[in-house]
Design a protein around this nucleic acid. Structure first.
Lengths: 333, 333
DNA sequence: GATTTCCGAGCAATCGATTTCCGAACATGG
DNA sequence: CCATGTTCGGAAATCGATTGCTCGGAAATC
């Protein structure tokens, strides 16, 4: 592989000058610069990024820690981060943590060891420890979820409002016994969405009913079993609000399997969109989160923080959109 | 940040010894090794990966070049690659190329500049130029698609057989005027799937009919317009085989919009599974590709090639699975 | 014309770990 | 007891680019 020294020799200048020409941090005689550029072209020289990274003490890599790209929510989010990263000259390292704290810690260690310029993380847990990153001065943006301990940039959606919209929509459509299948208690998103749900009920003048609230794991199986439990226990319900996409699918599967008509017997709405939800049977009503935009925004914040480490922590909150489809059609009779 | 020298001093040995202990390439007095380990733990030392990469002239990064993670086919594939990579100690850099050759070249340049250990690529085009990678000795595995020019490891599915299964299934279900919406002529996968389709027709004794064959772009819009064209031109059809997941969705949307009953008036089957296809209206029949396994296999091959650059190029072909659902129910009457 | 200022180019130090090479210490065999 | 072999620690070179510092020369000023 060619080195900067070779280019310097070929152009009849010093390596330092070549570097300056290529990085443009200092002015160089235009004629020399032209010679350098010509030499680079003729030799087909490509700077060694690793050496540059060593000297600059920073790479052009971002780590994106999410639970699973397989979840459409994160798929689109990651795509947003990647597009944003590319725009600013960063590459994105994909880190699936499966909500597993050990795996998360592992990837944080990698980000640190490899001197990554920044980390975008959707913490597995509100108590995920990112102190090592902060201590090392690595730029961090949390996405979708917040951290209890540390003050870092965060990109969020208005979970409470979104959930409130979902439940309010069900109420307006005539549903009254609305179950809520939300996520684990330790996750802020789950709690916020539950709170939004409850707020809508209260605003409508309905009393809270603990038997209608279920905590599951944000996964398909979780949604399925929570739904099954509601049915098995004979809890009287006429609708269900599931707090994320996978649990919505699980709940729908359970209802379908048991021959419960949607929305005839039970109306359904889910938080978070699902690709091609309109092609489902029935078309699934959802509260869409701006997932791609979330990723873009995180990229923006991260790039900015890298250039500007002292800036106080920012907090962006994006809004959701109600997409009513057949699964929550107005109740008849 | 702590350096190896600090650890050496703290443990009362030389930096070389610390390195040997940590990398285990040479034997070190157990007692000293213990002291080194203790020092590492006490100081919380973390080796600088960039410096190591510079010296070793290789990083622990893989680039994965695909058209778009948003496509469920690639989502799952990428997940497979990531799981495989982690197992072998590599991190995965996500590179969405959008079938865009410029973007592809850009990412290849990044992979080269950053000394990435390997590249897994689903080439935008059968003539994608990876010679620079080969010249630099970077390990390369192509996935899903093959390259015309270069001999490199490849992980493929049996496209011809899969497509044959799909069309044969339609024929067995009583469909006779089967349209085929395949991909661009320049892509080997598109042509293979078309050939499989035609083989099934031939085996069944049906004459080829050019008016039933459409080339689209492997995207939702492409499937939609191809389907629309078929309907607008009044081509007589009773079923359609779409050669990938997105075009299947597009075709179904077109049919649904125009009130064409599936499978009543037109049966549908698609190549490549779609998440939750069973929840669609109607449940979509598909030929499932082992996408996750494809990713795992590519990771395996890549890791192996990195350790063993001289090995002759391997070619793995995985099989598909037919998943008949309602959209291709046996034709009645 | 002499002195000061300023600009830009090059030398050399630096980033931090790995690895080659050399020499010391110790063991083993004759 | 010496010769030979073996093991292992440490000094120093190396990977390749960036950048602080220095100094020469041109321009500006009096």
């Amino acid at each position: 592989m060619l080195k900067i020294q070779d280019v310097a020799r070929h152009a009849g200048v010093s390596a330092a000058t070549v570097s300056r020409v290529l990085n443009g941090r200092s002015t160089v005689n235009p004629e020399l610069a032209a010679r350098v550029h010509a030499a680079v072209r003729e030799l087909g020289y490509r700077p060694n990024g690793v050496a540059r990274n060593l000297r600059r003490r920073q790479t052009t890599l971002w780590a994106v820690l999410i639970s699973d790209v397989g979840n459409p929510f994160f798929t689109s989010l990651v795509r947003g981060v990647e597009d944003g990263g590319r725009q600013f000259g960063y590459s994105v390292v994909l880190c699936n943590t499966d909500e597993n704290r050990a795996r998360e810690a592992e990837y944080i260690a990698v980000a640190l060891a490899d001197n990554m310029a920044g980390v975008i993380i959707s913490p597995a847990d509100d108590s995920t420890d990112i102190s090592a990153l902060v201590a090392a001065g690595t730029a961090v943006v949390t996405i979708d979820r917040e951290l209890a301990e540390t003050e870092v940039d965060a990109v969020l959606v208005d979970n409470e409002k979104g959930a409130e919209m979902a439940t309010a929509h069900l109420l307006e459509s005539g549903y009254r016994r609305i179950a809520c299948i939300t996520g684990p208690r330790r996750m802020s998103t789950a709690m916020r969405r539950l709170r939004g749900h409850q707020r809508a009920l209260r605003a409508f003048g309905l009393p809270p009913d603990r038997s209608l609230i279920r905590h599951a794991d944000f996964r398909e199986e979780g949604g399925y079993s929570a739904m099954a439990a509601l049915l098995d226990e004979g809890v009287e319900i006429d609708a269900v609000f599931a707090a994320n996409n996978l649990m919505t699918v699980g709940a729908v599967e359970c209802l379908t399997e048991r021959g419960v008509a949607i929305p005839g017997q039970v109306g359904v709405i889910g938080f978070d969109d699902i690709p091609w939800a309109r092609l489902f049977r029935p078309g699934l009503s959802t509260v869409r989160q701006p997932t791609y935009e979330l990723g873009r925004a995180a990229a923006q914040l991260l790039a900015d923080r890298i250039d500007n480490p002292a800036r106080p922590a920012a907090r962006m909150v994006l809004q959701t959109e109600l997409h009513p489809r057949e699964s929550s059609s107005p109740r008849t009779g």
